[in-house]
């Protein structure tokens, strides 16, 4: 018998309903020495993002005269999964994720305002429980905002899948291993545009549309949460500088 990812009572394995996300938690500015940093939790998936820049391009040959160079490095902590294993930064998965996250962030950053500079984004997964890709983009987005880098819009991300003929929002590791499709979107909430869409499996177009819609809805919810957190952070900063009386 196949696993019941959604019980007939409408609950998922971890007690969520199909359209519910995991608990989110975000802390802005966790690494004071960096220009921007953030910690982002999506349930048990915990990700830290650190941003340096804009600064001078370290390797001159890579310098771009009309825009900023955005570099991203993704890694997983040795202790991020149940089985502790040293993970390289150059394996296929990490390279791919570095590129995906980097490109998604680059699309949001107004690079043309910062020519001949470099922006470094480091994302590290502290604990992995499915949906690391989305969590990394969200963390990086907050860190970029923290660093004060000009962006077109916040870029938010959320994943959705399809198991037991039900679209499920924000899959955890157990559901991710269920073999169904896992679709990740990057989304500009203000512009209402998608900047990233990834999925590795074949699904009928009707299903795809449902899952995509769900993922986008999820992304909007992430955006609301993220704005709240950033606003909260800005208020704290403002009051610290005496601009705002709390």
């Amino acid at each position: 018998m196949t696993t019941e990812y959604v019980s007939p009572e409408g609950l998922r394995l971890d007690g969520r309903r199909p359209h519910e996300m995991r608990h989110m938690h975000a802390v802005v500015g966790v690494v004071p020495s960096a220009d921007g940093s953030a910690l982002f939790h999506m349930g048990n998936t915990k990700v830290m993002a650190v941003v340096y820049g804009p600064h001078e391009v370290s390797n001159r040959t890579h310098q771009l005269h009309d825009r900023a160079l955005v570099r991203c490095e993704y890694s997983m902590a040795t202790f991020s999964t149940g089985e502790r294993r040293r993970r390289g930064k150059t394996d296929r998965r990490s390279t791919e994720l570095s590129l995906v996250i980097g490109q998604t962030m680059e699309a949001a950053i107004m690079t043309h305002l910062l020519p001949r500079t470099q922006i470094d984004i480091y994302v590290q997964v502290l604990q992995a429980d499915g949906g690391t890709r989305a969590a990394c983009i969200n963390a990086a987005s907050i860190a970029l905002a923290d660093a004060g880098i000009p962006m077109r819009d916040l870029v938010v991300s959320c994943a959705a899948g399809y198991l037991n003929s039900t679209p499920l929002l924000d899959l955890n590791y157990q559901e991710d291993s269920g073999g169904g499709p896992d679709l990740v979107v990057g989304y500009f909430p203000k512009l209402e545009k998608l900047s990233l869409l990834q999925m590795d499996s074949k699904v009928p177009i009707e299903t795809f549309e449902k899952v995509l819609e769900l993922a986008t809805e999820g992304a909007k919810a992430v955006a609301t949460f993220m704005r709240e957190k950033l606003l909260e952070n800005t208020k704290t900063l403002a009051s610290a500088r005496g601009h705002l009386k709390l």
Partner: peptide, 22 residues
């Protein structure tokens, strides 16, 4: 959080932590 230990296929013992929403 529900946590329990589980043996992997290779015989290693890992700790599995799963969220459990009430």
């Amino acid at each position: 959080n529900k946590s329990f230990v589980r043996k992997t296929r290779h015989g290693k013992v890992v700790k599995v932590v799963r969220e459990h929403y009430l």
